[in-house]
């Protein structure tokens, strides 16, 4: 399961809307302490600038991983958008997924009003969808999205 703060979900969706019709991509880093808690929103440039492909720029990628290393962080969430198809990992997504401990978040922006926000584990070519729990804060474990009005 992915537990994620609402402001981080909003930031991902906003980025995906802003870059539409190109795919948007980025990372939410979190502490490397096994808590699996996404904390720091890092939008990345899609070096491919494409509606059907995304790739972090190679220099940005090195900078990102050095920074996470220095902060004792890991990429808890790796997100990208699909702008004309559903929020499900494509064959390319599965083939290229190389962070076995990350939550791969996909947002679909094909509908201008409604978005789809879904999360997956992708390990050795196997995709497993997981529930997403949106919380206001990580401090109150029982405040789930069910307790709050829809956005």
């Amino acid at each position: 399961m992915l537990r994620i703060r609402r402001d981080l979900v909003d930031a991902i969706v906003e980025h995906a809307r802003r870059d539409h019709p190109d795919e948007a991509c980025g990372v939410i880093a979190g502490p490397d302490d096994g808590t699996d808690r996404p904390e720091r929103f890092i939008p990345m440039l899609n070096a491919a600038r494409s509606p059907t492909f995304y790739e972090f720029d190679s220099a940005d990628l090195l900078r990102l991983y050095r920074e996470m290393d220095a902060n004792d962080e890991v990429p808890v969430v790796i997100y990208h958008s699909h702008t004309a198809t559903e929020a499900y990992p494509s064959r390319t997504d599965v083939k290229l997924a190389q962070e076995p401990f990350a939550h791969y978040v996909l947002v679909s922006t094909r509908d201008p009003e409604e978005h789809d926000f879904r999360s997956y584990r992708i390990v050795n070519g196997v995709v497993t969808e997981e529930p997403v729990e949106v919380v206001e804060s990580y401090m109150f474990a029982n405040t789930g999205s069910d307790d709050l009005p829809d956005a």
Partner: peptide, 12 residues
């Protein structure tokens, strides 16, 4: 020497 897998994918 740093080895990093690309972070990439796409709709197709």
């Amino acid at each position: 020497v740093t080895i990093l897998p690309a972070v990439a994918g796409g709709a197709r």
